[in-house]
């Protein structure tokens, strides 16, 4: 089926990918420029915007908060999500699909509405500290990634090996930790990495859940961009891209990037 129409399709595909990746390439190039504004092509080479990242103290503070929220939230989301994913894959029961839909629903619930309702409900009505509110919002955001990725990993597990272990005398807990967990560890790693990225990048949920002293890196970057238009954010973006590539590499090794096209 090769003919001139395939050339048109090829051209279009490359143009679309140029549209998707071009802006990110431009960011990488301008981050090395010496000027106070974003010049493309840059009039020289400089690393000063990279060192400037470390001089804006709010970037450092919010970076620590973002990392803390992402790690702590991930841990709690895993404690909540792993047993749930296991029960969903292992047993058949009424309301199974409904429960699954509820666990996945935070992907579709608008983050900004979630943040707004948490602010109203937790922080204003019940005086819960802002940090806790932010953490709860991020855990909600991470649960669907944990449940979905681990479920897809469990779907490939033959549960008869579990029964074999139990018939040989292992109890339920031992069976889970010795048989099930090692078999799905790659799914767990990928789920944790994906939800980490989701938490670390999100703006919408955090927007309403930040206040004096409590803010996340993306919120801080958003505020910075609105008032300063120098390449600091470009330099920061490049660091985040490097970080993302490393994560993607691990996700590919553990889960396979084709997960993105298969699950749903």
């Amino acid at each position: 089926m090769k003919n001139e129409r395939n050339y048109l399709l090829t051209l279009m595909t490359f143009l679309v990918y140029f549209f998707l990746l071009g802006p990110l390439l431009i960011i990488i190039v301008v981050s090395f420029g010496p000027d106070r504004y974003l010049a493309f092509p840059p009039n020289g080479f400089s690393l000063k915007w990279y060192s400037n990242i470390f001089e804006v103290s709010m970037f450092m503070t919010t970076f620590k908060i973002s990392i803390t929220i992402a790690l702590l939230g991930n841990f709690i989301a895993l404690l909540l999500g792993l047993p749930a994913a296991y029960a969903l894959s292992r047993y058949n029961f009424r309301f199974k699909n409904t429960l699954n839909a509820i666990f996945i629903s935070p992907i579709l619930i608008p983050g900004i509405v979630l943040g707004f309702t948490l602010l109203k409900f937790l922080i204003i009505s019940y005086n819960i500290p802002m940090f806790t509110g932010l953490l709860i919002g991020h855990i909600i955001l991470m649960i669907p990634y944990i449940v979905r990725v681990i479920s897809s990993s469990l779907a490939n597990l033959d549960f008869s090996i579990e029964e074999a272990a139990m018939s040989l005398g292992a109890n339920r807990f031992k069976t889970f930790f010795i048989i099930v967990l090692p078999n799905i560890h790659s799914g767990i790693i990928a789920g944790v990495l994906l939800s980490f990225l989701e938490s670390f990048n999100t703006v919408d949920v955090s927007l309403f859940l930040s206040g004096p002293g409590i803010s996340t890196l993306p919120i801080q970057m958003l505020n910075y961009v609105e008032y300063n238009f120098d390449p600091t954010i470009a330099a920061m973006s490049v660091l985040l891209m490097v970080f993302t590539v490393i994560f993607m590499f691990v996700i590919e090794r553990t889960l396979g990037l084709t997960f993105f096209t298969k699950s749903r």
Binding site: P23, M221, S237, M241
Partner: peptide, 11 residues
């Protein structure tokens, strides 16, 4: 998809 929307809008 894994890059922050702040970075992508900034570009």
């Amino acid at each position: 998809l894994l890059i922050s929307p702040v970075v992508r809008s900034f570009s």
